[in-house]
């Protein structure tokens, strides 16, 4: 634009300018999940829009809700965040924000329109495996716990988890029960008994849930878990763990002789069978300094481990 009126015309535009923006969180939202929208608008000259609303329209043009301006920081009006249910259809979506109170001439009918976009993705399932013994005698059965949770909060009872061995062969197909792990929110747990192979080896197995096309759909998910298959253990390590000062038995202390491990009972006794060989045995308990023993196991071993209480946080011993 040139000429003597350019400046004036530009001023006219500035006087009626109206900018609007929608903040979308998250940009990738799980199908049917929570979509948090917030609107900011700035008018020139400055206008207080508090109390006025912006309509939110979905892909089809239907109104799904509104946001109301509640804050004015200098020139910018903002709304509180509003939570909307995301569509369940996967892929990119374009929604529209419409503000009816824009200045005349800015847009047809005095409306300000802002289109915004987000992507709907399938729910993510998380598969967890825990509780396998640290060492499993070859050919014996063992138990692990499977966990399954949907990122979108779906009930996963009845879903199936396939367990495959190191070669990829299926060793179990487990249907998740309704039980949920105490203290979690929607994490289903199911115990499963599996069979160790005959050969001594360290292997990585997998637990897998296939992609489903339910409404809403879930992505496939896999969890790998390591297993130590050992020769049949023939010697016993039995260690009684005591507090060095009080001589009281320590319950819950760990005895570790890789790959074997055990935990002490109420009498402070931990007992485990190990294969013949040399071991570094760690004894550790909460609030105590760990101790280490070196054992050559060609027969059974019984001993007492006294653990010293660890130094407390002592102002006289530290900086402060």
């Amino acid at each position: 634009m040139t000429g003597p009126n350019a400046m004036n015309q530009q001023s006219d535009i500035l006087e009626t300018s109206f900018d609007m923006l929608i903040d979308v969180e998250p940009g990738e939202v799980a199908a049917g999940g929570a979509l948090v929208l917030r609107c900011a608008a700035r008018a020139t000259p400055g206008r207080d829009l508090r109390g006025q609303s912006v309509q939110i329209l979905d892909d089809t043009g239907s109104t799904v809700g509104s946001l109301t301006f509640s804050m004015l920081d200098g020139a910018t009006n903002t709304t509180e965040p509003g939570t909307f249910a995301a569509p369940t259809k996967l892929g990119s979506h374009g929604w529209r924000a419409v503000f009816a109170g824009a200045p005349e001439g800015h847009a047809p009918g005095g409306e300000a329109i802002h289109d915004f976009f987000f992507t709907v993705v399938a729910h993510r399932a998380s598969v967890l495996v825990w509780g396998a013994p640290s060492a499993i005698a070859a050919g014996q059965s063992f138990t692990v716990t499977l966990g399954l949770k949907c990122s979108g909060g779906c009930d996963m009872a009845g879903r199936k988890i396939q367990i495959t061995d190191a070669s990829g062969a299926e060793v179990a197909m487990v249907q998740m029960g309704a039980d949920q792990l105490h203290g979690t929110s929607g994490l289903h747990e199911t115990k499963v008994t599996l069979q160790a192979p005959a050969e001594v080896s360290r292997q990585t197995w997998q637990a897998r849930i296939a992609r489903d096309d339910a409404e809403p759909p879930h992505e496939a998910a896999t969890a790998a878990f390591g297993l130590n298959f050992v020769a049949p253990p023939e010697h016993r390590i039995e260690i009684t763990v005591l507090d060095a000062e009080t001589k009281a038995p320590l319950r819950g202390a760990s005895i570790t002789a890789h790959p074997f491990s055990a935990t002490t009972n109420a009498e402070g006794v931990a007992s485990m069978m190990v294969c013949a060989g040399s071991y570094t045995v760690w004894v550790s308990a909460a609030g105590h300094d760990p101790v280490c023993k070196y054992l050559d196991m060609s027969g059974d071993h019984t001993s007492v481990a006294e653990l010293s209480p660890e130094a407390k946080e002592d102002p006289d011993a530290f900086y402060y």
């Binding site: 509780g131 979690t184 760690w282």
Partner: peptide, 9 residues
């Protein structure tokens, strides 16, 4: 020190 898996929710 002994090592422990981080695996149990």
């Amino acid at each position: 020190a002994p090592m422990h898996k981080i695996e149990r929710p």
